[in-house]
Amino acid sequence: MKFSIQINEGPYQHQASDTAYQFARAALAAGHEIFRVFFYHDGVNNATKLAVPPQDDRDIPKLWSELSKENDLDLVVCIAAAQRRGMMDVDEAKRQGFEDNNLNEGFRISGLGQLIEAGIESDRLVVFGA
């Protein structure tokens, strides 16, 4: 079956991203396809490449990035929510005149239409938030 996932909260503050990650892994292990993971609201903060959590804690942004690499997951960060919160890929940072960017490998920034498309194209959409 084809699943998509929406994540409304950033890492650490809420369990939402942790639960979504465990759910995604279990879905893949069970042979399901994940069409897309869409990061919205503060959920865009899961895409940062600048997080340095303590060594004995899980690195949530890195976990997503690795899961994406291993399974060719489409991790989409909402552009409107990302712009509000200062989440930038190289191109967007350049366009806005910033020297730095902070989007982790495996994530891409795109529009809200990607969420609607995920709803249309997937058999199920599951929302994780707070």
Binding site: H41, A80, G113, I116
Partner: peptide
């Protein structure tokens, strides 16, 4: 932000 999704989603004729 959910209102923003509704406005974008309206273009998809669902």
């Amino acid at each position: 932000e959910s209102l923003e999704v509704v406005l974008i989603g309206a273009a998809f004729d669902q």
